[in-house]
């Protein structure tokens, strides 16, 4: 999985926001987009249906500028959450450096969260990626709504790996950047670990799936 290009001193990270339909993945991207200064962000590309449900995917490129001598870019994607768009999900997931799983904290969505997490694991395995190894962050969204499942329960069911998890109310912007920061750090650290193990660093060149 290419990420750091030492020759051109560029870093590009592909981060995919995963989760059940209507859990707030696109909202996360919209919030990030609205808070990034102009010039640092590309257009948010969103292919949505008339009912504002993500049909294909959202794509938001962010240029973090030159950090520690590396031109650093993040590419944020969302997958369509609806069950029947599995082929699109699988496609978007390909080549991901990290995944944010956005769970809907409402009690009525508990099963969808679990099903989506299982689907994530299956699709990662289909790409030959170990779901227990890929950098992952969990976001328990919609904490501002009534009747939400306790975080402890979500943790127990959705986070057996004990990856970083964040409470959020994405519509209000709460917890959005914390989540992005969490996954970015995990991704960067995983690169370090992976290079140590494989000694591999290659050209990073990505395009939309």
């Amino acid at each position: 999985m290419p990420l750091i290009n030492y020759a051109s001193r560029e870093i590009t990270c592909k981060i995919v926001y995963y989760g059940p339909g209507r859990s707030g993945k696109t909202t996360n991207l919209l919030q990030i987009h609205s808070r990034i200064p102009a010039g640092r962000k590309g257009e948010l590309v969103s292919l949505a249906t008339e009912t504002d449900r993500t049909l294909f995917f959202d794509f938001l490129p962010i240029d973090l500028g030159t950090l520690s001598g590396f031109r650093t870019r993040l590419q944020l994607y969302t997958v369509p959450g609806q069950v029947y768009y599995d082929a699109t999900r699988k496609l978007v997931l390909r080549g991901a450096d990290g995944v944010v799983f956005v769970a809907d904290s409402q009690r009525g969505q508990f099963e969808e969260n679990v099903a989506s997490m299982l689907n994530l694991r299956q699709n990662l395995q289909a790409h030959g990626v170990d779901p227990d190894e890929i950098p992952l962050a969990l976001q328990y969204n919609k904490r501002d709504l009534p009747d939400v499942v306790p975080v402890a329960l979500l943790e127990r069911v959705l986070n057996p790996r004990h990856v970083p998890s964040f409470e959020a109310a994405a519509a209000a912007g709460t917890g959005v950047f914390e989540t992005l920061r969490g996954i970015s750090e995990s991704v960067l650290r995983s690169v370090s670990a992976r290079l140590g193990a494989e000694g591999a660093a290659q050209v990073s060149k990505r395009s939309a799936p």
Partner: peptide
Amino acid sequence: DEFGSFLAEVTGTLEEVV
């Protein structure tokens, strides 16, 4: 501010990584 903090955090991580 939020984006600035985010950048600072990522930069810190990156420094360690590189």
